[in-house]
Amino acid sequence: MTSTDERPRLRTEVDGDVWRITLDRPEAGNALDPALAEQLAQALRARPRETRAVLLLAEGPRFSVGGDINHFAAAADPGAAVGQLAHDWHEVVRLLVTCPVPVVAGVQGAVAGAAVGLIGACDIVVCARSTKIRPAYAGIGLSPDGGSSWALTRALGAPRALDLMLTDGALNAAEAHTFGLVSRLVEDDDLRAESIALAHQVAAGPIRAMVRTRSLVRRAAVRTLDQQLDDEARLIAESAADPEGREGVRAFLDKRDADFRNAT
């Protein structure tokens, strides 16, 4: 029999056009440790080329409680252990942000610590109404990692992000939705089905145009209008020349649904 320490931290499966990744360490609240960081990075790199979207889910009542404090506490050199885990986890965040297909996440229960940065790196986040989002770093005397300071500042603005992080505060799902940290709110019982349906809807769309759109949106806050306009002109020209763009225009003129799956 495999112990919980030895068994995989996540599951992967191909669901039609969707590469589904499910965090599977519910007994530890899907806490992030070196094994989970490595396995999630491997899962993102191993996405089958025929899949057109990634869906990130989690088993159990909590999406992720953030870093595994037991791992930190057991380390002979906590600074080195935490620093290495942050480095490994940041590779996961980079893989999500640069994923060549759109990324959807469905979150429930607790989203804490580095998991806040994880959802901030996803393109669309579906959130169960009972979810609580908490940076949680101040409570254990640490500064943020995992892109959580980036995600919170972009969504809330610096004053609210600092208030939340410095007071060890939390956001409920409605607040996270209002501030733009998550995209959609659903009833708890509907989270899995709604997230799966949305991932399949996204996978049926023009994924290369979606990735170009993501690039524009991610950079908009840190560039001038002239820079943004130049990039918009370049990328829409790429999209128009792409088989996706050609199929979309033909379908519009033919008054039919576009078949982006076969626009290669």
Rank of each mutant, 00 (worst) to 15 (best):
D259M: 01
A209C: 14
R212W: 12
N70F: 03
L152R: 06
E244Y: 08
Y137Q: 03
V82P: 00
L36N: 04
A241W: 02
D145H: 12
R94V: 02
H177G: 04
R11D: 12
V14A: 09
G147P: 04
D17G: 05
A203K: 08
G113V: 00
D231L: 11
S195T: 13
E232N: 07
I207R: 11
R212E: 08
A237V: 08
D88N: 10
A151H: 05
I21Q: 02
D188W: 11
A112T: 02
E13Y: 02
R219T: 11
W19H: 08
I21G: 01
V126L: 14
S64R: 06
E50A: 10
A114R: 01
F72D: 13
A41K: 07
T98S: 15
G147M: 01
V82M: 04
L156G: 09
L253T: 11
I140D: 01
D33F: 02
D189H: 14
S64A: 11
V93W: 04
E38N: 12
N30S: 04
F252S: 12
H90L: 15
V111F: 05
R94N: 06
A105D: 09
V18A: 07
D190G: 13
L162G: 10
D15T: 03
E244F: 08
N70Q: 14
P34A: 05
R47D: 05
A173K: 09
G157S: 10
Q228A: 15
V186P: 10
I207W: 05
E232D: 09
E91P: 05
A80N: 09
R9S: 10
D226Q: 13
R246M: 09
D257Y: 13
V111N: 04
N262D: 06
S239K: 02
V54T: 13
E6C: 03
G245L: 03
V125A: 04
L185M: 11
G146V: 01
D230L: 14
W150R: 13
C127L: 03
E175K: 14
M210G: 14
R223G: 09
T178I: 11
R184C: 11
G60D: 02
V186D: 11
E13C: 03
A43S: 12
A76Y: 08
K132E: 13
I133L: 15
P26Y: 08
